[in-house]
Design a protein around this nucleic acid. Structure first.
Length: 188
DNA sequence: TGGCAGATTTTA
DNA sequence: AAAATCTGCCAA
């Protein structure tokens, strides 16, 4: 679960947004050329080298934010990209941030998720085990978890490091049928 | 479904 | 200059 307590000064201040994470991608330490940490620290990626459970939020394509959770001890550099979530609480506030979008798609995709849950630069480097943006174990899931190739990469894209709930309507890529074929290919 | 704008950060 | 962990809009 990802939880956002909207801070004072923002629209819907005090509102609690809750969503069940249904899609993630792993970016591995040391060996993964698609991991932002691969080429060493820069000003932008500093927080991916933080202690486990740190938020690494970066701005991409001039338009979108993406939320990652660090996984390794300080200085190593690896994270899980939170790609999609299913809205559970505070749906009105999410709709105001994503006008005209169906509820199941409010946080469908890494940029969409950040938009719906008001995640931006201000969250980069925060501790995700507490505070205004905690991540907690989900109370329930559909029971299935599939693994497939990562999305949107030009290198190491085929590594099976994307994890998603095939029964959720909120996964980003939307055509689960094709995903299943890819998983099948990987299995052979 | 496919192509493109949008506009920041890094150098792949 | 070009590419990058993307999305929404438009045309067909």
């Amino acid at each position: 679960m990802i939880i956002r307590q909207i801070t004072a000064g923002e629209p819907d201040a005090g509102t609690r947004l809750v969503a069940r994470i249904v899609e993630t991608e792993a970016y591995l330490p040391l060996v993964d050329p698609s991991c932002h940490a691969y080429r060493g620290p820069t000003k932008r990626n500093a927080s991916v080298f933080g202690r486990p459970g740190t938020a690494y939020v970066y701005f991409i394509y001039g338009n979108h934010f993406c939320l990652n959770v660090t996984t390794e001890r300080p200085g190593i550099g690896a994270a899980v990209l939170i790609r999609a979530a299913e809205p559970l609480e505070g749906i009105e506030a999410m709709r105001r941030r994503r006008p005209g979008v169906a509820d199941s798609r409010l946080a469908s995709g890494p940029g969409n998720l950040c938009r719906a849950m008001s995640i931006d630069r201000a969250d980069d480097g925060v501790d995700l085990s507490s505070g205004d943006l905690p991540i907690e174990p989900a109370q329930q899931g559909s029971g299935r978890l599939l693994v497939g190739p990562r999305i949107g990469l030009s290198v190491a894209a085929s590594w099976p490091l994307r994890f998603f709930d095939p029964d959720s309507k909120s996964v980003s890529a939307s055509r689960v049928g094709r995903e299943l074929e890819q998983c099948d290919r990987l299995a052979r």
